[in-house]
Design a protein around this nucleic acid. Structure first.
Length: 946
DNA sequence: GCGGAGTAGCTTTTT
DNA sequence: GCTACTCCGC
């Protein structure tokens, strides 16, 4: 018979013993009596490398410690315990994600046949999240998607939902789990053969759910230190190989799965209900009587495993399915000896006694399970024999664990213990009460869920546009321009107008929608396709230019490659003795206009650049719309073909237009097409690349007879966020009043923090993220983050900054707390794994990149002098009005929660600065803000959470 | 043609 | 403070 412990952690996981290395595992497995051991943590690159170095294949589908290492260590083992264990690559992954509108936190145990298979999984996981900073990585990946990925990498994978009943991190957990396996794993549920019951539940509890009948119930230690190995384990009657294990888990008894060694579930940290902070421990009935609220403080009671099992059970207590496997409830030998000696389990005396017992009797599990009582008495005295006899018979006194506090197993009554302390002789033992289980289970579910995130904004759904949107949608009297503030339903209006035009008899193929980015064009195209408008033309300005030029030239123009362009630029720059970057910028700016002649200082470079391109028959990207507009002006036949091509032209983000683009639109509309432009001059943030915000106001001049519409309703953000953003814009000197109206309720205040330095800002931010997510690991949960959970997922959160240089410390702090994070600038969408797009992560991106996006929670960091408005060293300051609009864009990305922060000290460009607050800070009304304080008290808690 | 020293310049971004 | 580039010497 084999003893198998498949779920452990290495020293690369949080809060684990430093000696959790292959050698210590090898040694302690033998001291405990484990034959087959999961390596744990194979996802961690350093641990994987160590395993690859120190383990060797046995040849029949398992691993063993390298013989030379084993030989060197063998001496340190008592001969009675020498039975070298085998290893199988294992790991645990924490999936934290939102599913069906709720935050889910599910841990999964994964076993792979070989380290090479593990490496291939690691390769895939590495793209999806951070597997380098924690042996038990946290991914924003749906548990089902994780299973899919594992199966893709290795169809033989053993995938086991871990400690399925723990409240915070398991598939059935009361706080963030599911009610059924199928809810979590959908179509892939059939690939799950085994479930890990965890310390706080034992087989009889699980037998109460008929839904679990087909699964092999396994038990493992989840050990964080060598001493905890095999505190729970599996008993197998099969060879110690991966495939035999897989077969045993799949077939149960028929495959050689004999049963499990268990903790008394009462001893688990989450067996009963309760509230640790208030010292309150409750049974299911009591929790129900209190309505799930702590009677001391009113906070939510942490519903334990016993209650949760009762909630989902469909069978009475005590039911035993016919196919149920054997199990044995034990307590660790050091705890037994500790009680016999009347000392703590970690004391020297207990250690020495356990050591002596192992020497004489063999591994701890053998002592606990098999050694005859007479032998125990001879080796350890009659009291020890009596203790173990009681343990084997289940005659123990239990005090249940709750809300993160371990329970206690006692083998002797208080009176007995007192007498034990005084004498060494055999005791006159009074009968002890039976096992402390059998509490009445709660008959009705206790609703312990977090309050749902505030209801989604009442967007203008159904066909239902509001009256203002509808007027703009329906207008047929000529050109029109729509000023649409943040969250006003801009895209909705665009697509609705397109649909209306076609529904009214228009020809979809004579409809043109123009955007600035390919991403926007693709998204718009997709939305139109869902409305049955595939025939409508969706283009970027550049794509449109390319098509017109192709028509004009009779061939597709060649576009200069980046590298060649740089060469040409640096050549051209030599003609004027300017840095190439500056020449690049100046030429590009010139090409945003049709009429501009280069200044004399630039002229030679401009000439050289244009001649070089012309000589090779190349165009640059700026040429596409520009040359197209010029060609339409010069080539009458071309103009004839294109000016009559469309009946309607819809343009998004018009505030970002430049004169070339407007000229192009005018030529396309010359045949009578109606132009509908939509945008928001308050969100014009691309002046630096040639956009001219004034063109928005000049629309009526460029497109005669145009009518203006105004969409002021904000369907996105809470009232206070809208009010703060509006106040920011209202403070701009010489500005006309323009007040968007929030449709949503006021919501919480805008939360502000002034940090000593970027590190402190990042730590504060990471701390808030932990709270928003309700804790990412058990330490954070137990430090209180669970109770403050806000029901957000990592994908709901964005961090916005002025300079990418600000991202680094924040990404690091988020990695330290284990939050799945994605720094937007580093990822090219096209190269991503399809699963990558599904991974839910905190997004770090520039304020510019955030335009057009929205997030339930937004952090805007670095609201400092010098950063906002940006003051580049040794250069002209950025346009303060545009920088104000940039902050406006950033703030208005937030739906529910907005956090603003700044640093009092910062190192930027090698220069130590003590910046004051951004001048924009003062424009935010104090009554909308609440300051977060940085206090020593808070620091103490941070230490716990980090 | 290479390497070492010295120094300038550092955003935001799309096609 | 970092790097990427130029310039100069061999």
């Amino acid at each position: 018979m084999l003893v198998a412990d498949l779920h452990i952690h290495s020293r690369y996981s949080r809060a684990t013993a430093r000696d959790m290395g292959p050698e210590a595992l090898w040694r302690h497995a033998q001291l405990k009596g484990v034959d087959l051991l999961g390596t744990g943590d194979f996802t961690h690159p350093a641990w994987w490398a160590e395993l690859a170095e120190k383990l060797v294949e046995t040849g029949d589908g398992a691993y063993q410690l390298r013989p030379d290492l084993a030989a060197a260590l063998g001496e340190s083992l008592p001969p009675s315990c020498r039975r070298p264990p085998r290893f199988l690559p294992s790991a645990e992954i924490s999936s934290i994600y939102k599913r069906h509108g709720q935050t889910r936190k599910v841990h999964s145990l994964i076993l792979m046949p070989t380290l090479q298979d593990a490496a291939r999984l690691n390769q895939r996981l590495d793209k999806l999240g951070n597997i380098k900073s924690d042996g038990r990585p946290i991914l924003g990946l749906d548990a089902r998607d994780l299973l899919e990925l594992c199966l893709e990498v290795c169809p033989e994978v053993i995938f086991i939902p871990a400690h399925i009943w723990t409240p915070w991190f398991s598939v059935f957990g009361s706080k963030s789990g599911f009610d059924a396996l199928e809810e979590a794993f959908d179509d892939l549920t059939c690939h799950i053969k085994a479930l890990e019951t965890g310390l706080s539940s034992d087989p009889p509890m699980n037998w109460r759910l008929s839904a679990l009948d087909g699964y092999t119930l396994v038990s493992n230690s989840d050990a964080h230190s060598p001493a905890k190995l095999a505190r729970e384990a599996n008993l197998l009657d099969c060879p110690a190989t991966f495939h035999d294990l897989a077969r045993a888990l799949s077939l149960g008894a028929a495959g050689g799965f004999l049963g499990t060694i268990e903790f008394f579930p009462d001893e688990g940290k989450y067996h009963l209900d309760g509230h640790r902070k208030c010292g309150l421990c409750l049974g299911p009935d009591e929790t129900r009587a209190y309505g799930g609220r702590c009677p001391v403080c009113g906070g939510p009671i942490t519903v334990g495993v016993l209650s949760r099992v009762a909630e989902l059970a469909d069978r009475p207590e005590g039911y035993r399915p016919p196919a149920a496997a054997h199990f044995e409830s034990l307590a660790p030998l050091d705890e037994v000896v500790a009680e016999v000696l009347g000392q703590g389990p970690a004391t020297k005396a207990v250690g020495a006694a356990v050591d002596g017992l192992r020497r004489r009797l063999g591994p701890e599990l053998t002592i606990l399970r098999q050694t005859p009582l007479e032998e125990l008495a001879r080796a350890g005295g009659p009291v020890l024999a009596e203790a173990i006899d009681r343990l084997r018979a289940g005659k123990v006194v239990l005090q249940g664990g709750f809300d993160g506090q371990f329970g206690v197993v006692r083998l002797f009554s208080p009176a007995e213990r007192q007498r034990l302390a005084g004498q060494k002789a055999l005791l006159d033992l009074a009968p002890v009460t039976g096992r402390g289980r059998g509490r009445k289970a709660a008959a009705r579910p206790v609703d312990s869920r977090q309050p749902a995130a505030p209801a989604a904004a009442p967007t203008a759904v159904d066909q239902g546009l509001d009256e203002f949107q509808r007027r703009a949608m329906d207008y047929d009297g000529g050109h029109l321009i729509v000023r649409a503030g943040p969250g006003a339903g801009k895209t909705r209006l665009l697509t609705a107008r397109a649909a209306r035009l076609v529904a009214g008899g228009g020809d979809a193929s004579r409809l043109l929608l123009v955007t600035f980015t390919r991403k926007a064009a693709e998204e718009l195209g997709q939305r139109l396709a869902t409305l049955g408008l595939e025939a409508a033309r969706t283009h970027t300005f550049h794509g449109l230019g390319l098509e017109i030029l192709t028509d004009h030239l009779g061939r597709r123009p060649a576009i200069v490659a980046d590298q060649r362009r740089e060469e040409i630029l640096s050549q051209a720059a030599k003609a004027v003795d300017l840095p190439p970057g500056q020449v690049d910028w100046a030429i590009s700016r010139l090409k945003q206009r049709l009429d501009q002649r280069p200044e004399p200082t630039l002229a030679p470079a401009w000439l050289a650049y244009e001649q070089a391109l012309a000589a090779e028959g190349l165009l640059d990207l700026d040429d596409l719309p520009r040359q197209a507009a010029l060609a339409l002006a010069q080539d009458g036949a071309l103009a004839g073909r294109w000016s009559g091509k469309f009946d309607h032209i819809l343009v998004d983000e018009y505030q970002d237009a430049n004169p070339v683009q407007v000229a192009l639109l005018r030529r396309l509309a010359a045949g009578g097409a109606l132009v509908a432009a939509i945008g928001d001059p308050d969100q014009a943030i691309y002046g630096f690349r040639g956009a001219e915000r004034a063109l928005f106001a000049d629309f009526g001049r460029d497109f005669a007879g145009a009518r203006s519409f105004d969409l002021r309703r904000n369907y996105r953000s809470s009232g206070r966020i809208v009010a703060a953003a509006t106040a920011l814009m209202a403070a701009e000197a010489g500005r006309e009043a323009y007040a968007p109206q929030a449709v949503n309720p006021a919501g919480p205040l805008v939360e502000c923090f002034e940090a000593a330095d970027p590190q402190a800002e990042a730590i504060w931010l990471a701390q808030r993220v932990v709270e928003l997510l309700g804790g990412l690991d058990s330490r954070q949960v137990e430090a209180g983050a669970g109770a403050r959970s806000q029901g957000f997922s990592a994908g709901d959160i964005a961090v916005l900054y002025r300079l990418h240089a600000q991202a680094e410390p924040i990404a690091q702090a988020l990695a330290r707390v284990g939050a799945p994070t994605q720094v937007a600038a580093t990822a090219h969408l096209a190269e991503l794994d399809p699963l990558d797009l599904r991974a839910q992560r905190v997004k770090l991106l520039s304020m510019h990149a955030a335009k057009g996006l929205e997030f339930p929670v937004v952090f805007v960091v670095g609201l400092e002098e010098g950063l906002l408005p940006y003051q580049p060293p040794g250069k002209d300051a950025a346009d303060p009005d545009e920088e104000r609009r940039l902050l406006y864009v950033a703030m208005t990305r937030a739906r529910q929660r907005l956090f603003l922060s700044r640093c009092c000290w910062r190192m930027l460009f090698g220069e130590s600065r003590r910046p004051g607050r951004s001048p924009f800070w003062a424009d935010l009304p104090g009554e909308l803000l609440v300051a977060h304080k940085s206090k020593a008290r808070r620091r103490a808690r941070q230490l716990v959470l980090f």
